[in-house]
Write a protein that binds this DNA or RNA. Structure first.
Lengths: 113, 113
DNA sequence: CCGAATAAGTAGCGACGCTATGTATGGAGG
DNA sequence: CCTCCATACATAGCGTCGCTACTTATTCGG
């Protein structure tokens, strides 16, 4: 998948991954990989700063822990994060519907993939 | 619609608008507005540079003309542009399908909007 | 005559995903 | 034992590109 098509949609996906429960950054990367069938393989240099932004914005809350001698920072959704996620889902639907209309394309979920 | 969600998807839409026939920049802006039900109202400072990029990339070909005393630059798709458009449609389908999967969202055309 | 619509353009900003690199630990294999 | 890979987090700096703001012209309606 081309680089910057993700622009503006990454944070929503991070929130979506965290919706199912607390996870740490490295695990989120793996989870994204598997949920996307390998299509979304993000470098850690993309994900960690994004998580910091989300935390600063108050959409996720992080805490340090140690597992097998390695430190982890685990994040969970805040109430604001949950709200933001549902807003982003709505605007994703609008966005895809509008752009698909202009492109003259039938939805990707339909049959393709 | 939020600003940079368009990132990486604008040029495909411009190509799609030009697919139906030669048009000049200003008209493309109006056409995009109407095709998107007013959701995509681009400032000219976005569109003209984008058209220049597309022309430099050889995806569209422009020529000057004069209508009612005003100069216009009209663009039409090149063969490469047509090819690129169909590629971008394919990758749009893939992109929406993958991201929707991760977000856990049903298609926007379905019921919403 | 003046302002809106038509028509095209550029300069500069900011957001953000990327590459590249650095740090550190644990476990597996030779 | 030592090296390499997986795990785990982080930051610096780049490049792209849509945006704001502004400029230049012409035509037309009031």
């Amino acid at each position: 998948m081309k680089a910057d098509v993700l622009k503006g949609h990454l944070e929503g996906m991070l929130l979506a991954v965290l919706e199912t429960g607390e996870q740490h950054g490295y695990a989120i990367v793996e989870e994204l990989k598997s949920r996307s069938g390998g299509h979304i393989a993000l470098p850690t240099g993309t994900v960690y700063p994004a998580l910091h932004r989300l935390e600063t914005a108050g959409l996720i809350a992080g805490r340090w822990s140690v597992h097998g001698g390695r430190r982890r920072r685990s994040y969970e959704l805040t109430r604001a994060g949950r709200r933001s996620l549902s807003e982003q889902r709505a605007s994703w639907r609008e966005f895809t519907s509008v752009v698909s209309g202009v492109l003259g394309v039938e939805p990707g979920w339909a049959g393709t993939s």
